[in-house]
Design a protein around this nucleic acid. Structure first.
Length: 271
DNA sequence: ATCGCCTCCTGCGCGC
DNA sequence: TGCGCGCAGGAGGCGA
C-alpha cells in the first residue's frame, strides 16, 4: 500500500499520540510476517516509553530505551489509532496500547510487512544500512543518480525504485516523477544525461512533497493513522491512466510492464 | 556488481 | 450467482 508519502502521513498522524507515551501492552495475534515477529518483543518493550517516532525510507522507527521497533508496511499494511483495545477488523495482527489510551493497530492482509527489533545504532541494522539517501533532503542530488547510474543498463524506472539508490520512490511515484520530468521509463539508466537527472531529482521531490501535503494516495484503502484518506490520487497524471488523455498533449497514456510492475507513461511527452 | 525473475500472502474486480 | 484468473502501493534473495 504505502510509498514514502503514505508512510510519512501515517507517521505525522500517529506521532502525537505515541511519542513520550508508555507502551502498556503489545498484543501479537499473528507472528507470521515477512520476517516472523520475535517472541521476546513484549518483554523488550512493555512498560517502555516511546522516545521518538521517526522514519527512514519506508521504515517507521519507534525508539525506546535499549533499542528500536522497526515497522514496515509492505504492500498492504496500515497503522490505525483506535480507542478499542480489542481487534476490530480482520487482519488486525498487532496492537500496541499506549498510556495515552490509544491502541495502535497494525492491519496487514498480505503480511508482506514486518515488525522488527534492533538495538542501537538503528541505522546499522542490516535492512537500513545500505539504503540510499532520503529524497526530501539535500543529500539527494542529481549527482546521486548520475554517479550510481553509469554502469546501470536496466530501465531508469527500475533504477529509481531501487531503495539502495534512493529510498521511498515506489511504483506510483516512479511513473509520476518520470512523467513530470518527460523521461521515458524504459530508457537505460546509464543513457540518462546529467541534466535529465537534475530535472528528475527536482520532480521526485515535488511529487513526493505534494503527495504528503495531500495526505498521500488512496487507491483502495489507504488511511492515515487518524482515519483520513489521501487525495493525491486526484493529482495523478500517469499512474492508472491507461488509455486516458495525456494532461499535456493530444496523445494517450499507455501501460507497459517493467520489472513485473505496471508502468504508465505518455509516448509523445516522454522521449 | 548487476539484472531479471521469483517469492511471500490475501482480496478484489473482471470476464465467462 | 459462482468460479477462475490476473493483478495489487514492496523488496529481499536467487541464479546467471
Amino acid at each position: 500500500m504505502p510509498e514514502l508519502p503514505e508512510v510519512e502521513v501515517t507517521r505525522r498522524a500517529i506521532a502525537p499520540h505515541v511519542e513520550n507515551e508508555i507502551i502498556e501492552n503489545i498484543q501479537i495475534h499473528e507472528h507470521r510476517f515477512r520476517w516472523p515477529i520475535i517472541k521476546e518483543l513484549p518483554d523488550l518493550i512493555n512498560g517502555q516509553k516511546v522516545e521518538s517516532l521517526t522514519r527512514r525510507g519506508k521504515y517507521l522507527i519507534f525508539k525506546v530505551a535499549g533499542g528500536h521497533i522497526l515497522i514496515h508496511l509492505g504492500m498492504s499494511g496500515s497503522l490505525r489509532l483506535s480507542e478499542n483495545r480489542l481487534p476490530e477488523k480482520k487482519h488486525d495482527h498487532v496492537g500496541i496500547s499506549m498510556s495515552s489510551g490509544w491502541t495502535l493497530w497494525l492491519n496487514d492482509p498480505r503480511r508482506f510487512g514486518s515488525v522488527l527489533w534492533t538495538k542501537e545504532p538503528v541505522l546499522s541494522h542490516k535492512l537500513l544500512s545500505k539504503l540510499g539517501p532520503e529524497p526530501l533532503t539535500d543529500d539527494f542530488t542529481a549527482e546521486t543518480f548520475y554517479k550510481a547510474s553509469r554502469n546501470r543498463k536496466g530501465p531508469v524506472k527500475a533504477f529509481i525504485m531501487d531503495s539502495h539508490i534512493v529510498v521511498g520512490v515506489g511504483n506510483i511515484y516512479a511513473s509520476e516523477s518520470l512523467f513530470m520530468a518527460r523521461i521515458n521509463p524504459m530508457t537505460p539508466a546509464n543513457e540518462v544525461a546529467l541534466e535529465q537527472y537534475s530535472k528528475l531529482v527536482e520532480c521526485v521531490k515535488l511529487v513526493l512533497e505534494k503527495s504528503i501535503k495531500s495526505g498521500g494516495t488512496t487507491l483502495k484503502d489507504f488511511m492515515s493513522g487518524e482515519g483520513k484518506p489521501g487525495y493525491f490520487q486526484q493529482s495523478l497524471s500517469a499512474y492508472g491512466r491507461e488509455g486516458a488523455n495525456c494532461v499535456s498533449c493530444d496523445d494517450k497514456i499507455i501501460k507497459i510492464v517493467i520489472g513485473q510492475r505496471a508502468t504508465f507513461y505518455c509516448p509523445s511527452c516522454q522521449i
